[in-house]
């Protein structure tokens, strides 16, 4: 008999790792507020527009030449499921903002299909956010936001805009798709900021 029993796979992670009001899931639920955009990489473009109107653009080839990172993070959806230790590959927003000059404090993320969500710029920088294009070693499926999605895992998952196509910098914290319909403007899962006023 071996030293390690066959069922032992290391220290399990349990509900104690979860923000308040969340439950653990092993699945990867698909939530969507509209039809799934199917954007081919050759037609994909990502832009950052500054508050002065300066536009920075990457097509898929230019985006793929940026340094990529392997990312393992927990995900927390405002609909109360959490999924732990998910594996992604993507480009840090720090790399994308390297040549962007801005004094703006806020960002509106825009997606193919029309979805929007608002975030403070400081939550996208310093190793906190990525444009992810692989999940579990595979190209990111369209149903999960492929070919590329925003990944901001320290906030509720509605902030990690699927099918992201651009960021618009602003001096004002305008509200996005769900934020204009009662969801919290920031969305910290550890403070359970689900709804406006939480």
């Amino acid at each position: 008999m071996g030293i390690i029993s066959p069922g032992f796979t290391g220290r399990g992670r349990s509900g104690s790792d979860l923000p308040p009001g969340q439950y653990l899931t092993q699945d990867f639920p698909v939530l969507s507020a509209g039809p799934t955009p199917h954007v081919l990489p050759e037609h994909w473009e990502f832009t950052i527009a500054t508050e002065s109107g300066e536009m920075h653009r990457w097509d898929w080839a230019a985006f793929q030449r940026l340094p990529a990172e392997e990312i393992t993070r927990d995900l927390h959806c405002v609909t109360r499921w959490s999924k732990l230790a998910t594996d992604w590959k993507g480009v840090s927003l720090d790399a994308l903002f390297e040549d962007v000059e801005t004094a703006a404090d806020f960002v509106m993320a825009h997606s193919y299909g029309g979805y929007t969500t608002n975030l403070p710029l400081e939550d996208l920088l310093d190793g906190q956010a990525w444009i992810a294009y692989q999940y579990d070693g595979e190209p990111l499926a369209a149903e999960h936001g492929g070919p590329a999605r925003l990944l901001v895992p320290h906030l509720y998952l509605w902030k990690s805009a699927k099918w992201v196509r651009g960021l618009v910098l602003s001096d004002t914290d305008d509200l996005g798709f769900w934020e204009t319909a009662g969801y919290h403007e920031y969305g910290d899962p550890w403070k359970e900021q689900r709804y406006a006023g939480d």
Binding site: L31, G34, P35, V78, G182
Partner: peptide, 13 residues
Amino acid sequence: AHVYVDAPGMVAR
């Protein structure tokens, strides 16, 4: 209308 319910809210398109 096309109604999406697997979302943080209900959306009719």
